[in-house]
Write a protein that binds this DNA or RNA. Sequence first.
DNA 1: CAATATGTTTAGCGTG
DNA 2: CACGCTAAACATATTG
Length: 683
Amino acid sequence: MRTSPRRPLILRRRKLPLPLRDAPTTDQVVANYQPERVQKEASSHESISERTDPSPQKFPAGIKIVNHPTMSNTQVVIIPKHADIQSIIEALTAKGKESGTSGPNKFILISCSGSPRSVCSSASQHCSQTDHANTDEDDAEGVSSQVEKNVEQDPEDMKETGQWPSETHFVSESMLGCKDQSSVDIFHADDEEVSNCVLDDSLTNIQWLGKMSSDGLGPCSMKQELDDKENVSPEKEGARSEEDASVAPCSSSTSWQESFSERPPYSYMAMIQFAINSTEGKRMTLKEIYTWIEDHFPYFKHVAKPGWKNSIRHNLSLHDMFVRETAANGKISFWTIHPDANRCLTLDQVFKASVTGDEPLPFQPVAFVRDEDPFISVKQEEAFNVMNENDPFIAVKQEEEVFTTMREETFFTTVKQEETFPNIEEEDLFTTVESPTRKLADTLLEKHPSISRRKQRLILPCLEEPVLVFPECNNSDSGLASDFSFLQQTQPFEPVLAVCCPQEEGGAFKTPIKHKIGKLPTLSTPSKPVSTVSQAGSSEFYRTGPPTREESLLDFSPVQGPQESMLTPFKDSLGFLGFTGTPFKDTPLFDSPRELLNTKSPEVISGPLTSSPTSAPYSAKPCSKELHVGSSGNRSLTEGLVLDTMNDSLSKILLDISFTGLEDDDEFGVDNVSWSQLIPELR
DNA sequence: CAATATGTTTAGCGTG
DNA sequence: CACGCTAAACATATTG
C-alpha cells in the first residue's frame, strides 16, 4: 500500500509510562483477547458477570462485567440503562479496594444511555476545565489505561483478527488515575489511517514525543540513539507497537531509539520555525536549517529522501512568514520569521508542554472555531496536532495544537509600512520583484497586493473566532513577546483572547505577508521580496486575526492533551483546533466521582447546540468541530466512566461505538451489546 | 565552466 | 476546496 505523504498523525497523547503496579491476576477470566472466545460471546449475549466477577459485591441486575482483554487489572462494566450508577460505582470501588493490588482495581463503565451528541458536547465543553485541572495536578502516580479502537474492519475479520468491529469510528484513550484527577482523551481517528496504522501512529506520534526528554532534544542524544534505531525493521517495530500500545511503554532509551526513525509529526513549516526560533538571533541560513532539522529529527538525516530539502526550500519560499534577509555583505542569506508572525515556537517548548506537562504554563490558550471551520481537515493529528502544525504554531495545532502545525494559515496581517519606508505605498511593497502569478493574486485580492497567492482565505467575523494570543515567547524578543508583554503581566495565568476583526486588518492569510521591509537585496530569483537583516525590528501585530486552521492545527499538535493545553501560547491550535479530527480529545475532568456522575450530557451540550456563535462564542466554539463530527456520521456514541479504585478516581470516557443495527439509542441496550464487538473497542 | 547550493514557482497527489 | 507534501523546472549565486 502506498504510504500516505501526509505527515504522521498524532492519534493520541499518551502520558508518560508508569510502572505497572500489579501483574495480571489469576481471577481474570479474560486475560487476553481471544478472537475465538469473542466469537462465542457474540452469539450468546450472555451475561458474563457471574463468571468474570465472582466477587461478593452487590451489583444491580443486568450489569455485565468482563475483564479487559489487555489490561490486567481492569474490567469493563456495562451498565444497564436505568441502573443506579452511583451504587455501581460504590460496589466497584469496594470490589476494587477489596481486591487490592492483586485484583481488578480499575473499571471501565460503559453506560448505554448516552447519546452521541450529548457525549460529544460534554467532552467538548469541559475541555478547558480539563486543561486547568491537569495543570495543577501531579499525575506522577497515575495509572493509565488506554482504550483504543481500530476501525472499518469487517465484523468477521474482526473476530478473526481480534480487531475492531465495523462501524467503529473513534479511537479513544483514557488516561486516568491521577489521584483525584483523571484525564481522558478521546480521539477521532481517520478510519483509513487507523485501520492501517493505528499502532504505527501511536508510536510515531505520541511515543515519539513521549520518549523525548528535554535533554533528549539535543542533537547528541538523538544521534546517539540513531544507530540502534535504524536497525529496527518496520516489521519488528510494528510487532512491538501493539505491545507498547497496550502496555504503556516505558520511556526507556530503547523505545526511544526504536521510534525516532519515524517521521516527526511536524510539518515542514513547523520544523523550520523550530529551527529558526532555536537560535539567538532568530535567523538561520538554509544550510543551518537543514542541519538543525537533521540533528533534531534524525528521520530526515537517515530515512527521508533527499527531496525533503527541496520541500524545506519550497516552504521557505512559499510561506510569507518566512522572510529572507541578506547580510550586510549581501552574500549570506538568512531566513527569519516575520516578527509579527513568529509565535516563537520551539521544539523544546513544545516538548515540555506536551510531554512533561509538569510546568504550569502562564496561559491557557483558547481558540474558538466556527462549526463550519475547516479545521477539521487536520489529522494530523488528526488526533493531536500540538504542533501543526503546521506550524507549530503555525500550527499548533493540529491539535493543534500543543502544537499544529503551526499553521500560519490564517494570519491577519497588517501590512504595515516600515519606518524605514514610511512613504512607500502598500501597493508598491512588492512591485520590485513580483512574478506574474503574484501580480495576478494581488489583483484578485485587490487591497492586499502583497499577500501570498495562498492567502485568499475567508475573513471571519471577529466575534466568532477570537484569537488567542500567546504572550509567551521563549527567549524571543520578536514581535509577540513585546506585544503581549502587558497581557502576561496582567493575566499571567488567564487565557488571553485577542479578538480581532480581520476585515479591519486587511484579511486573513495563510501566512504572514512578506512585505518589503528593507532594501531589496540581491535575489537569486526576482520573484520574492527580501528584507535586510536590519528589518528584524518590526513589531507590528502581524497576527491579529482569528486562528485559522493553520494556527490551530499546528502540525505539531501531536502532543495535545489536557496537560498540554498549558504548554504553549497557541494551545488552542494545539489543543482544540489542532486535533480537530479528534472529537473528544479534550474531555472533562472532575474533582470527584460524584461530580462526574452529576454531570449530565444534555446539559453540557445545550450550550453548543443551541447557542449561536455570537451569543456563546467562548463556550461553544472550541467544541463546535467536535459537535459537528459527532453528529454528522452514522455513529452511536456511548458514554463510559473509568473508575480507578486504586486512586479513588473516576473519569469519564467517551466511546464511539457504532454497532450495526444499533443506531438507535433505544436499541443500544445492554442486552443487545455483543461482547465480541465491544471488547475489541476497549483494548 | 561545471557542479553545487540556493531560491522561486508550478503542478500533482492524497487527505479531510 | 484548502492544505501539506512531493517532485520538478527554472533561475541565480557560489564554489572548486
